[in-house]
Design a binder for these strands. Structure first.
Length: 727
DNA sequence: GCATCGGATTTTTTT
DNA sequence: AATCCGATGC
């Protein structure tokens, strides 16, 4: 086992063989981070004789967990048995079910996904007679999620204005409703776990003792709740081994807090830091490009990354006429690489900022008849029929789950509409019981209940009996058999297969779900539902298929490919428009780009399009991404092949060096030299009255002005149309 | 209770 | 462009 270290460089050896105690490994991209983690586990078990069941290893995705599990097993064989290895959420789920007695929910709690949360919040907002325009469920949930990630309960939720106060009320009700549904959301899993560890010394000691060594991957993307969990678990032994890279921190929006690195160094004074700086993945060209990008970010520890893979192909920049052309060119280039260059299809990856960008690429691949793998996006588990099917199972497992009940009680239509449902809800509330439990009770024939329910009784009781039978099935049979019963009893097949082509597709999805279900014959329904909630579509990627991969830059973290395309290098897309006026967010966009670039082993291609279809439908001219300006010219080769070499407005020189020598519409007027409006100007508008100009900018010939109007708020106006009068 | 039509609306990333 | 929501009519 000692020769384990032979395969490592000196920094890696130092990291793997570090003494027990708080350790921080700052690992540049491609520096063998995963390797160090797996070897560290092997070292703990093989050399330091720590039994695997005393080790906890936390990863960021299930996929990473699976990979690590495989590698550890390869190194250790049977000795790896008993290790706890998984995502934060999976680990917390395990702890919470064990310790359910201490929770407001019981052991059979379900996990509400984003859709469930949205539905629930929408209901609550309506019940409170709040304006749905002012209180968007998404934004309220966002605020609640942020609070939970910061360990803020409703009691200490910061209230600075009326809106905060309302949100706090909604937060309280939301939590009550989750409990009534015997459910929790993703953030609750972390919050509850951290509370258990904080408030119950017994729990803290139990798990602190169990996990003698704690290893964490992607530490830069942990939030405060996750940090609190780690700190409490390591309170006695301090054996916290963290691996991360602040330059790859890309989940700030999800509560990730890079300050956790500082917190760790403050809380664990005796911690030791190890840097991994040798890159084994990329060519010098790619690494230099990456460094040029990331070095523009302020407030970071500069690392001196180096590689022995000198030189390498230059980075290619492709400027396409429009977004479809962009997709076509990427796919054409890949096809060429596969057929002429004899490259493996799976050595290619195409990355983009938003999932929506995958559509044109998919179409291009289909036109070319090339297989592809798509990570995330049109999510299998997000499909209606799949969600319905899962909702049936969830309801069987946990009848208190009102969201699932409402979802399926009338699927296929069985005469239970709004009226009936509200009657059920009302009676349930009256009896202080969940709707599901009320249904079950009705099924067993309770005269008083029937009286309360009145003429709605038969239909509801019938569904209650179905539910009761399914629950019986669930206790006796495998999930798949239960599933078949549900399908049969509801006439789901006929309902789905409505003779349309779409119906066929949907039915196939149902069958696919059943195939997944069969894998849970042994583990049972509970494990299946847990997996459904926690396994993201990221993880469903079929590894076997030898095909190019399409994925978001976020999903690309931790992966590597010989050939990487990053598409959509346009302002508003990368950096994304949502991040434009926030320095921190902008820095994160840059890191995201950096993550993408550093995924490439041999060849990097960046693409942009001169115009693209806006989400609203019409074509719009684009502006080159500011990140392009930071690329070292000597490492680049441009390509605007086949395009006319003159601007339609007569200019010979491009505005920016990234503008292709090609203009899309000859009819487009030349841009005015400067804006007519300036920030601070007083203006008058026909309907909004007096206002003050906040910003003004030129967008391919049109001047867009943002004006603040008293009583109307901020409005974005097109100067040429709005007839603004300067006062 | 259910289907259909028309109008409004559209926040990027994910466990 | 596509989807969702609400109102309307059956």
């Amino acid at each position: 086992m000692e020769d384990l270290l032979d395969f490592l460089n000196s920094q890696q050896q130092q990291a793997v063989a570090a003494p027990a105690g708080p350790t921080l490994v700052l690992a540049g991209p491609g520096s063998g981070k995963t390797r160090v983690l797996t070897y560290r586990i092997a070292y703990l078990v093989g050399v330091m004789n720590i039994p695997a069941y005393h080790i906890l290893a936390v990863t960021f995705t299930n996929k990473a967990a699976r990979q690590m599990g495989e590698r550890v097993t390869k190194l250790l064989g049977d000795q790896a048995e008993g290790i706890w290895l998984g995502t934060f959420h999976a680990i917390c789920g395990r702890i919470l079910r064990r310790e359910a007695d201490l929770l407001p929910v019981d052991r059979n709690f379900v996990i509400f996904d984003a859709d469930d949360q949205e539905t629930l919040m929408k209901n609550i907002i309506r019940e409170n007679n709040l304006d749905e325009k002012l209180f968007r469920p998404g934004s309220v949930l966002d605020a609640i999620s942020r609070a939970k990630n910061e360990l803020l309960t409703p009691d200490n939720f910061p209230v600075n204005n009326f809106r905060d106060d309302q949100v706090r009320r909604l937060y309280i009700q939301y939590q009550q409703r989750l409990v009534r549904n015997n459910a929790m959301d993703f953030d609750d899993m972390l919050l509850y776990t951290s509370q258990l560890l904080e408030d119950f010394p017994v729990v803290r000691e139990t798990y602190g003792h169990k996990f003698e060594h704690i290893l964490v991957d992607e530490f830069q993307d942990t939030n405060l709740a996750q940090y609190a969990i780690l700190r409490n678990l390591a309170r006695q032994h301090h054996n916290l081994y963290l691996v991360g890279d602040e330059d790859q921190s890309i989940y700030r929006w999800r509560g990730a807090d890079y300050r956790n690195i500082q917190r760790f160094q403050t809380d664990f004074k005796d911690s030791c830091t190890i840097l991994l700086e040798q890159n084994y993945r990329s060519t010098q060209t790619i690494l230099d490009t990456a460094v040029a990008i990331i070095d523009r970010n302020p407030n970071r520890t500069r690392k001196s990354l180096f590689t022995e893979r000198k030189g390498g192909d230059k980075v290619t920049l492709v400027v396409a006429a429009d977004d479809r052309d962009e997709a076509d060119r990427v796919v054409a280039s890949i096809r060429e690489g596969i057929t002429r260059g004899k490259q493996n299809p799976s050595s290619y990856a195409i990355m983009y900022r938003t999932n929506a960008q995958s559509r044109l690429l998919e179409e291009a691949f289909r036109r070319e008849g090339i297989n592809y793998r798509l990570v995330g996006a049109q999510r299998f588990y997000g499909r209606r029929e799949v969600k319905d099917a899962i909702a049936f199972l969830r309801l069987v497992y946990n009848p208190k789950d009102e969201i699932s009940l409402r979802r399926v009680i009338n699927v296929p239509p069985r005469g239970i509409g709004d009226k009936t449902l509200e009657k059920l809800a009302q009676v349930a509330t009256q009896l202080d019981r969940s709707m599901g439990e009320t249904l079950l009770e009705l099924a067993s024939g309770s005269p008083e209940l029937e009286a309360l329910m009145g003429r709605e009784t038969p239909r509801l009781a019938q569904f209650g009996r179905l539910l009761r039978d399914w629950r019986e099935q669930a206790s006796k049979n495998t999930p798949a058999i239960l599933f078949d019963r549900v399908v049969e009893d509801t006439g789901y097949t006929a309902y789905i297969q409505d003779h349309s082509e779409e119906g066929m597709d949907r039915w196939e999805n149902v069958l696919e779900l059943r195939a997944v279900l069969v894998e849970y014959d042994e583990q049972g329904l509970a494990a299946f539902l847990e997996a459904m909630a926690l396994v993201a579509d990221q993880d469903t990627l079929p590894d076997q298929l030898d095909a190019p991969t399409m994925l978001t830059l976020h999903a690309a973290k931790g992966l590597e490919f010989d050939q990487v395309f990053i598409t959509g290098l346009d302002e508003f897309l990368l950096p994304h428009s949502r991040s434009r006026d926030d320095e921190e967010a902008l820095a994160e966009e840059r890191r995201l780009f950096y993550v993408g670039v550093t995924r490439a082993r041999k060849k990097l291609t960046l693409t942009r399009a001169l115009r693209r279809r806006s989400p609203y439908g019409s074509f719009e001219a684009t502006i080159p991404s500011r990140f392009l300006d930071d690329l070292p010219t000597e490492l680049l080769q441009g390509s605007a092949r086949g395009l006319p070499s003159r601007f339609s407005d007569g200019r010979k020189e491009p505005y920016s060096r990234w503008e292709s020598p090609y203009f899309t519409s000859a009819a487009r007027p030349a841009e005015p030299a400067k804006t007519r409006f300036k920030a601070g100007m007083q203006v008058r508008h026909k309907t909004y009255g007096r206002g003050v100009v906040k910003t003004s900018r030129l967008d391919h010939g049109d001047e867009t002005v943002e004006v603040y109007f008293e009583g109307h708020g901020l409005k974005a106006l097109v100067a040429s149309l709005a007839k603004l009068e300067i006062l």
